[in-house]
Amino acid sequence: MYSQTFSRQNPGCIIFLVDRSDSMRASWGGSNLTLAQGAAQAINKMLFELCVKSTKVHDAPMYLYFYVGIYGYGLCPRRSGEGVESALPVALADRFIVPLPELADHPLRVQDGGPGARPGLPVWYEPAHGYSTPACAAFEMVGSHVKEWVAAFPSSFPPIVCHMTDGLVTDSPYKDVDLAGWARRLTQISTDHGTTLLLNAFLSPSDATMTLFPDNARGLPAPGPGLFEMSSPLPEPMVHNAAAADIPVGSGARGFVFNADFATLVKFLAVGTQFNVHDETYA
């Protein structure tokens, strides 16, 4: 399981699911960012790195190694209310999981690189916050689209869902199923190479003790144990990524970070999303 490489014949699917509840307005300890701003920066950075990986030469189109999605829950700026929605840039807003080269061509804006500097990094996702934390409904929506994707790419590495939140779910149970149940439904969707991977990052504005890729939930306050149980065991490619980044992971480590600061969130997402592409076979 989880041995499939990311190639043009068998592209991967990486989804960012971000809490946009009101509490994401809190300042992130040790940085000058709010939780919402930090999550947005981390998402944009991961997307940029995936774009770079998928680029081979200066005069050829980007290769399609990855499909990507961005979902937000809590505030829905496009609907001017609360709920779950695709948080892709406006040009792609009526879609959910799109080929990375399309996303690459449609940033919301490009950061100013400064006078005389090279162009800055593209921005696809802007921070937002407001309302409550309807994570169950979010998992349901992501699950429905992930299911469609695996039907189209049954031989690919399973989808990876990176969930970032700072709070307690407010819509559980939803349709008589609690958050753990929705997470189970999501992580039961599989390709030939394994089930969908769910990584959970719990963001904390305080300087509370951080726990990265734990192999048990002992001593974690709520909602740590629940999020730990929902998080997928790290497959070998992610263990490899962690080792390459000098992050120690034990046997049975899960894709979970508790009380993440900004720098750790970036490392966490890199372990879960930054894989070598390898065109062993072609369509």
């Binding site: 940029f48 770079v52 680029t55 200066h58 980007m62 690459a104 090279r118 990094l121 593209p122």
Partner: peptide
């Protein structure tokens, strides 16, 4: 080299 996008430039 004339870069068509910043990804190639960054990668180089």
């Amino acid at each position: 080299r004339e870069f068509h996008n910043i990804y190639a430039e960054h990668k180089l």
